[in-house]
Amino acid sequence: MSELNILYFASLREALGCSGERLALPDGVRTVGALREHLAARGEGWAALGAGRNVRAALDQRMVGPDAPLAGGEEVAFFPPVTGG
């Protein structure tokens, strides 16, 4: 199965100390929300992705909610609420 291309932006990128990674779809992860929980469980700085933190997600460059399904091979981005304009 092809890997996920995961991207992190803005304050979240700084908190994680990383702008992205490639990751095989972890066992049992079927949605964007489950992927977020999986990443947050790494501990330390990854708590920035934890429940209660104001984090938004995009799947293949479209904003999605936590129930958006993953099959592997997608581009998934996590970021804080946007502040452009």
Partner: peptide, 25 residues
């Protein structure tokens, strides 16, 4: 403009005399 403010993926980081900070939504 209203939709851009809430849907377009931009993030502002301000430099102030006390250091840099990300702008809150």
């Amino acid at each position: 403009m209203d939709y851009l403010k809430t849907r377009a993926p931009f993030w502002k980081r301000e430099e102030t005399p006390e250091g840099a900070r990300w702008v809150d939504a």
